[in-house]
Structure formats: C-alpha cells, structure tokens
C-alpha cells in the first residue's frame, strides 16, 4: 500500500507539471496580444509595450514558464488585468462557491446512485428498478441549464419552496466569516445553524441541476456492475452459507461492484468543478465558472492559468484518494502498483 501511495504521488506530481505546461502553452498560443486587449485599441504602442514588460511577456518563453510555476507554488498568483484585482482574492471568493456547489451536487448524485442501484438490484420490480433505470437514461440526455431552469420554474416560481436565482445567501444575511469559504461548512464551524440551513436551502436546486448528469452516469455504472457480479459463483456460495439476499448484496456484491464507480467518481468530480458554468449562470451563483469564462474571452492569463492549475490539483488529489480507497477495497489493486 505504501509503495502504491508513493508511486501515485510521483505520477501525480508529473501530471501536475504536465497540466501546467498545457495550460501555459495553450494560452500563449491563442491569437491576440494580452496587453493590447487589456488596454484597448486606442492605447499607444508605448503603453502596450510597458504593460507587456510589466506582465513579463517580453521575456523568453522558458523564463515565463519558470516564473509561472514558481509563483503558483509560492502563492503569488498575479493580478487580473481585466478586473484589476489580485487573482488570489478573486478566486479566494469564487472558488469555494464552486467547490461547495460541486461537493453537494456530487454527494447527492453519489448517494442516490448508490441507494437506487442497490435497491433496484435487490428488488427487480417495475418501480424499484424500472423507474430509476428510466431516470438514469433521462439524466444523461437532459441539458443541465434546461433542467436548472425547469427546477427554478417548479421549485421557485410555481411552488415557492426554494429561493430564486439569488446566489448563495439572501442579501440580508451576512455570510459567515470562515476558513473554508464554503458557507455551510463555515456556518457549522461557528455553530450558526440558521445560516447553515439558509445556505443549504440556496444550494439545493443548483446542486440538483448540476448533479443530475453524474447521477445518471454513476447509477448506470453501478447497476450494471451489480448485475454482473450477482451472477458470480461467490454470490451463490455466500447465500449457501446462510446469508440473506440483502446481506449478500450489500456485504459481498457491493464491494465487488463499486470500484469502477469510485474511479468514475474521481473523474466526474473534477468535471463538476470545471463544468459548472452553465448552472452557475442560471442561478447567479458567484462561482469561478463565470470568472474564468470571462478570463478566457479577455485573455486574462493570470486568472485562467491559476484556475487550470487549481482544478488540476483538485483533480489529481481526488483521483489519488480514489486510488487509495479502491486499493483498500480490492487487494489486487494495491499489489498491482502503477
């Protein structure tokens, strides 16, 4: 197990460097001059040249890459030239909002996929198995922003059960000051249950909208794998030992079927963070998605680069955790090493 973790750490570091390189090169290759875009078409050539040298764009590409990597790890993330603010404070506010939304969406998707797949595999009725299966197919085909709008119309406009697209908290509530920037977590840390409940209330619809697709994917994956392993001889033998159908399903079949779902979870979680921009737009969620989309359009290097690296770090860490969990479930994975 230790050798697995070590080899994974090394490959994670290499993957991170790779991600940094790709982010760096892709942005440099994009047409247009960042300094010119920042200052506008009427700026004098001298002003543009001055900004280019201030941004470091006049240095060699290698030096730029070195500075970029060094600054990322030392926490100097530069300044957004479009917004005139340090990237650190920009992302410091926005990224936790995206992370929190992604976490809730993912947890809802994972737990409901797990429960429904187990239930359907255990009781193969038209309701217990048929309805979730249809839902799983639907989830893969429904566009997120459309589903987000439908949820808003039903949950807010028609029934008034949930708040409208008003961001993370109503304007009247002061956001909890806290270490993580995720309001539900910070509110709990301060013991402020009322703010926690309000934040959760605001999170529910966007998380549902964002979580539908991963739910469909994870559900179908686990359900199919459960079906596969339920035909294995060990399922029969476990029952011959006197274990009930349900117990065999949960204690024997699930650990054998869940590993592909865990692996997929790692990938999906990363995707949720990077791909939540449409849902953020629908719900006026002040997350990183909008900020970064703007950044790309305006060639705001600093913001985009840091976001890509930050996503890569989270992606890699998540997958590292997934690998370790999977290896602790299946001993053959721990042995296999790389």
């Amino acid at each position: 197990m230790t050798s697995l973790i070590l080899s994974r750490l090394v490959s994670s570091f290499i993957a991170l460097l790779g991600a940094a390189l790709v982010a760096f090169v892709a942005l440099r290759l994009a047409p247009g001059d960042a300094a010119r875009l920042t200052l506008g078409a009427f700026a004098t050539d001298e002003a543009v040249a001055a900004l280019r040298s201030e941004m470091g764009l006049d240095q060699s590409i290698l030096t730029q890459f070195y500075v970029y990597i060094r600054d990322f790890f030392t926490g100097d993330w530069g300044r957004s030239y479009a917004l005139g603010e340090p990237v650190r404070s920009l992302l410091g506010q926005r990224f936790p909002a995206t992370l929190e939304l992604g976490l809730y969406a993912f947890c809802m998707a994972f737990v409901s996929a797990l429960v429904l797949a187990l239930w359907g595999a255990h009781r193969k009725g038209p309701i217990s198995d048929g309805v979730p299966k249809a839902l799983g197919v639907l989830a893969l085909g429904v566009p997120q922003f459309w589903f987000g709008l439908v949820l808003l119309i039903v949950g807010f406009e028609m029934t008034g059960l949930f708040p409208g697209p008003a961001g993370r908290l109503p304007a009247t509530v002061t956001p909890p000051a806290g270490p993580t920037g995720m309001y539900t977590v910070d509110a709990l840390l301060h013991g402020d249950l009322k703010t926690f409940a309000t934040a959760l209330h605001h999170l529910f619809l966007p998380a549902l909208a964002l979580g539908l697709l991963p739910f469909g994917f994870l559900y179908r994956l686990l359900r199919a794998n459960l079906e596969d392993v339920s035909g294995a001889p060990f399922a029969l033998v476990a029952r011959a030992h006197g274990q009930s159908r349900l117990r065999v399903m949960v204690a024997t079949l699930l650990p054998n079927a869940i590993i592909p779902m865990l692996t997929a979870s790692g990938l999906i979680f990363g995707q949720l963070l990077a791909g939540s921009v449409l849902v953020e737009r629908v719900y006026n969620w002040p997350g990183a998605g909008m900020l970064v989309t703007q950044g790309v359009l305006q060639q705001d290097y600093a913001v985009v680069q840091v976001f890509i690296l930050l996503s890569a770090v989270i992606y890699i860490v998540t997958n590292l955790i997934v690998d370790i969990v999977a290896a602790s479930i299946d001993p053959r994975l721990a042995k296999g090493g790389a």
Binding site: F234, T252, P255, N256, P331
Partner: peptide, 15 residues
C-alpha cells in the same frame, strides 16, 4: 452445507 464446483470463482476476490 454446500460446496461449489469452482474454487476460483466461489470466493469474493476482495474479501
């Protein structure tokens, strides 16, 4: 008691 014919498949590999 029951003994299965396939000693390879009759044990859950992750337990």
């Amino acid at each position: 008691g029951f003994v299965h014919q396939d000693p390879m498949g009759a044990f859950s590999p992750v337990h």
